[in-house]
Computed example of a mutant assay.
Amino acid sequence: MSERAKVVGLHGGLLVLLFALQFALPAYHHGNLARIMVLASFAIGYNLLFGYTGLLSLGHALFFAAGMYGAGLSVLHFGWSPAPALIVGLAAGAAVSALLGLLALRTAGVAFMIVTLMFAQAGYLAILYFGKWTYGDEGFVIARAARMLHGVDLSDPASRYFAALALFAVSLAVCLWLVRSRFGKTLIAIRENEERTRMLGYDTFARKLGAMVISGAISAAAGAVYGLLFGYVGATFASVQYSIFPLLWVLLGGAGVVVGPFVGTLFMFYLIDLSSGVTTAYMLIAGVVLVLLTLFAPQGLTGELRRRLWPWLP
């Protein structure tokens, strides 16, 4: 079997499996998996910047929140339907990531990480400051009647699952296509040796900016869809923890592997879920497991699979 066939078979098989699980899972896990697919799409956006371009950002909560508030406020204050609200959220995330990229990409390494973190915190504080419109820390609920997309009720569990699957499928396909394209290979070259890539004649700043805008747009789409599907928009999603989460999901699943973010998100979600059912000190259990994984699978779960068994994993 050719490498292309293996890649298509693996990623296509994952989508087919997720489609089939809609009809087999009990209600609790059905809802969990819908949430995981949306958050995994957020992690896919992060992986494009961190895993493939080598830029460690601590500001992705800003993009997720830009998409969420762009869509949510459009519905709340202007009465727009989900479709145009989603477009507004996507555009807001792309615009914010482009602006941040133009400023933050003038730095590198730790400085880049700190600048992205500071901008994300500024976004979080802005949400609290303009609480008259954003409802601050309490957030707001998007009414069920406002979550109708061409007659489809997005609050219905089945519709919500398929919408989450559609977002995940598009995010996965875009990421897979990008990393196998010339643009994606240039990003990997920048990650490995930016100076040499620049010497070969590539405009590394423009390509990193492009990666940041695409990453921000995917993250914003996840934020917008999350708000529309689950009916809540709050400042928590702009806080620093939502910049740390995608980093953890990507590291656990495998940075620089297309399916890594999904595996990491799934693993982390159920690790905390199952641990909390055993003890109130569930974060202690989660912490021990994460340390063990870091020690014995430093490249992440799918990263280790690529190193040991499947070197063709993109």
Rank of each mutant, 00 (worst) to 15 (best):
Phe183Asn: 12
Thr134Arg: 05
Ala189Trp: 09
Ile218Pro: 08
Tyr226Cys: 04
Trp177Ser: 15
Leu200Asn: 08
Trp177Lys: 13
Val174Met: 14
Leu251Trp: 04
Gly184Gln: 02
Thr134Ser: 08
Leu229Glu: 13
Leu187Asn: 13
Arg180Gly: 06
Val250Glu: 12
Ala173Gly: 06
Gly231Trp: 09
Ala222Lys: 06
Thr197Met: 13
Leu229Cys: 15
Gly184Trp: 00
Ile142Lys: 00
Tyr135Lys: 12
Ile244Asp: 08
Ala217Glu: 11
Pro246Thr: 03
Ser215Phe: 03
His150Gln: 09
Tyr232Lys: 14
Asp203Val: 09
Met199Leu: 15
Ile190Pro: 05
Asp153Pro: 08
His150Thr: 10
Glu138Lys: 11
Ile142Pro: 03
Arg144Asp: 13
Gly184Cys: 00
Gly216Gln: 09
Met199Asp: 09
Glu195Tyr: 12
Gly227Lys: 12
Val170Gln: 05
Ala189Met: 14
Ala189Pro: 12
Leu248Asn: 05
Glu195Phe: 14
Leu252Ile: 15
Tyr161Leu: 13
Asn193Trp: 12
Tyr135Gln: 14
Ala217Asp: 11
Ala146Lys: 03
Ser155Val: 01
Ala145His: 00
Phe245Leu: 13
Gly210Tyr: 02
Leu248Pro: 04
Gly253Glu: 07
Arg144Glu: 08
Arg191Ile: 09
Ala224His: 03
Leu252Met: 15
Ala222Phe: 01
Ala238Met: 08
Ile214Pro: 03
Lys185Gly: 08
Thr236Gly: 11
Ile244Arg: 09
Leu176Phe: 04
Val233Ile: 10
Gly227Trp: 10
Arg160Asn: 07
Leu200Glu: 09
Asn193Arg: 14
Ser243Met: 00
Arg160Met: 05
Phe183Trp: 12
Leu149Ser: 05
Thr204Gly: 04
Ser215Arg: 01
Met212Ser: 10
Ala145Gln: 00
Leu154Ile: 07
Ala158His: 12
Ile214Glu: 04
Phe237Lys: 02
Gly184Phe: 01
Phe162Val: 01
Ala235Ser: 13
Ser219Leu: 02
Ala169Val: 10
Gly210Cys: 05
Phe183Ser: 14
Thr197Leu: 10
Gly231Asp: 10
Arg160Ile: 00
Tyr232Ala: 11
Val240Ala: 09
Val141Tyr: 14
Pro157Phe: 02
Ala217Leu: 13
Ala211Ser: 06
Tyr161Ser: 14
Phe162Pro: 00
Glu192Ser: 06
Ser155His: 01
Ala211Cys: 04
Gly223Phe: 11
Trp177Pro: 07
Met199Tyr: 14
Arg198Asn: 12
Arg144Lys: 06
Ala166Asn: 06
Leu209Val: 10
Leu200Cys: 08
Ala222Thr: 07
Ser239Thr: 01
Gly234Asp: 08
Ala146Arg: 03
Ala145Pro: 01
Asp153Met: 08
Asp203Phe: 07
Trp133Thr: 03
Ile142Asp: 03
Ala173Tyr: 04
Ala189Phe: 11
Leu172Tyr: 04
Ala173Leu: 15
Lys208Asp: 08
Thr204Phe: 05
Leu251Asn: 02
Phe245Ile: 06
Leu247His: 01
Gly231Ser: 09
